[in-house]
Design a protein around this nucleic acid. Structure first.
Lengths: 336, 336
DNA sequence: ATCCTGAATGCAACCGATTACATCACGCTT
DNA sequence: AAGCGTGATGTAATCGGTTGCATTCAGGAT
């Protein structure tokens, strides 16, 4: 039952050749004569032989696997990135291994950065310790990045993207524009907050520190931020809010709607990411679209290139974002 | 540079023992004497030796990997299931490999069901051909299932779950209750549609075939269904709709809202899945909660048990669902 | 003193392929 | 006829551990 899988030996015996020849037919058919090749192929078909990848990989000192380190697999944001990664890796003959860095933390992480586990690493989590990743297997970073880690990065210009959101709101006539930030310390939070500050200043609208609320990218934190917005005196409330994630934007909108406010009449809202649902909620969310699928693809391609050419460049690839204007933004109500 | 990784030989030499002893220290420390063990461990630390999993796996005739076959990785529905799977597999010493069955179809699929690729398979796609999966590596099915494939299944009672939704609406006083189904042929669609029919009949409300709309679980198809609902004469429109997915429910609600209808005043809506966002949209969606994370966990545990004990039982594990009543359902407007 | 037992360790085959190098047959040159 | 290049194939080492079996040695029983 277990031993019934034919091995290369069995094929060789049946075809009357050596295992070396069978191996050649498999991986370098050109060097084998027509006749021999045909009889080997017959033997393969007759035995139902299938190559044992593990053995080949051992000999080749590779694993055929690429690990993606995801901060939180349950977060749908990563689903599309992983999909993009998978779309490149599969056809290239690599397996995609997925590791959730969340619960077990950096402990197991070292195991995944082992050459015997995977040939390369795609890091989607900027909160990992740089020292755990340096000097190990080839890696690229996507979306987020670990400060101080030297690696190619595939990402968007978060600062400029935030600027797009601010510009849009300011162009509509808003002068008090708030911001709900991502988790403190997160590289994305910092960049987006920076973009918000920069762009406001550049347009002569002083960034009001009291109009910054701390979030963590989650729905609940958006809702909590809305509660703080509601608690402010009407005359001082921002007439528009830019949030560092769509999830927070949804939470925010639902909460203010629950309190009788209408978006965008009473408040304009811009999100970030353009996750699938937000074009179908009410009102459809104005947001910054991140090319998530493409980020995954490009990151995977970059890693494969590094594996093949062994290049050691730490280049950044910046992918374009897009402001998607939908129904959650409008000019401020007159007289507010 | 490449060959500088110490091998078990190097450790053995340094510790003055044979490779067999080092191997024993690694995998069966009990049989090695205190002294020897200590000196081997010192040697391991001194050399920075790390075990090569590929070699061990080759010898053990296992791969240490479990493949999850996902119909569409980009669909966030699966993210939480995968997270549950990962939470079991990681601590158990298995790698989680992910394969998207979408684009490349069943072609590559055979490769993943190879013993040299993975030790087991978790199938999340009910649309795969049974013949491609029978007689191959151990597998379990989760959520969906392939008719005719013999394997343990971890799922919910979709029929009864749909009944819960119908009961809730009927209890509120609705008598015309519509249904937006999933993709035709899908096992989940069929079961949920069946549950809708059964329960309506059981309560003496004749299921109206004209109140069934074809969807495909996607937001857009929910929106399309809403358009058909809107096209019906007001007096004949169902006053409540049960949709086979939350995504469709969101699309449906947004579309009717766009046409000036208010949920739940003019129409009650029940979704299916309880994906994260729907508790934060407006109105918060009444839906059937599927324990997605737990489905992933249980499926992974079931597979591991099968791998360890070699059992060959094709048992079904039915996980409980829950009706979550939120703001999208209410009694029908009087006089309608 | 001899035999036996069991614990600790070493030897070497093995997992299943790949591949550098050797070998061999054949045809062509000189 | 000897020499030689070329293409096809075989031999055997190798990737890096694991493990059945043999060996050694110490201590206890007879």
């Amino acid at each position: 039952m277990k031993n019934d899988r034919p091995r290369i030996r069995d094929v060789a015996r049946l075809a009357g050749v050596s295992t070396a020849t069978v191996s050649r037919v498999l991986s370098n058919p050109g060097v084998v004569s027509q006749q021999t090749r045909a009889s080997v192929q017959n033997a393969i078909a007759a035995t139902g032989y299938r190559l044992n990848e593990a053995a080949r990989n051992l000999r080749h000192r590779r694993t055929g696997g690429i690990v993606a380190l995801v901060p939180n697999l349950a977060n749908p944001f990563f689903a599309q990135i992983l999909s993009g990664i998978a779309s490149v890796l599969g056809p290239a003959g690599y397996n995609l291994l997925i590791a959730d860095t969340g619960p077990d933390g950096a402990g197991r992480l070292l195991d995944y950065a082992e050459p015997s586990r995977a040939d390369g690493l795609i890091v989607l989590d900027g909160a990992l310790p740089a020292h755990a990743l340096t000097g190990r297997i080839p890696l690229v970073e996507a979306c987020e990045w670990v400060p101080g880690l030297s690696a190619p990065r595939v990402k968007i210009d978060n600062r400029a993207a935030a600027g797009l959101a601010v510009d849009h709101l300011a162009d509509l006539g808003h002068r008090r524009i708030g911001h709900v930030a991502g988790p403190p310390g997160n590289v994305l939070s910092i960049a987006r907050l920076g973009g918000w500050r920069d762009r406001l200043s550049a347009r002569g609208l002083t960034p009001d520190e009291a109009a910054i609320w701390q979030g963590d990218f989650s729905l609940d934190s958006g809702q909590a931020a809305a509660a703080e917005w509601l608690a402010q005196p009407p005359g001082q409330r921002p007439t528009a809010v830019f949030l560092a994630s769509d999830a927070m934007a949804c939470g925010f909108i639902a909460e203010v709607q629950r309190h009788g406010f209408t978006v965008p009449r009473d408040l304009s809202v811009v999100g970030f990411d353009d996750i699938e649902l937000v074009s179908h909620v009410s009102p459809p969310l104005t947001t910054i679209r991140q090319p998530r699928w493409m980020i995954g693809r490009v990151a995977a391609e970059r890693l494969l290139r590094r594996l093949e050419t062994g290049d050691t460049l730490d280049d950044d690839t910046i992918l374009p974002v897009e402001l998607v204007v939908r129904g959650s933004t409008a000019p401020p109500a007159p007289g507010v």
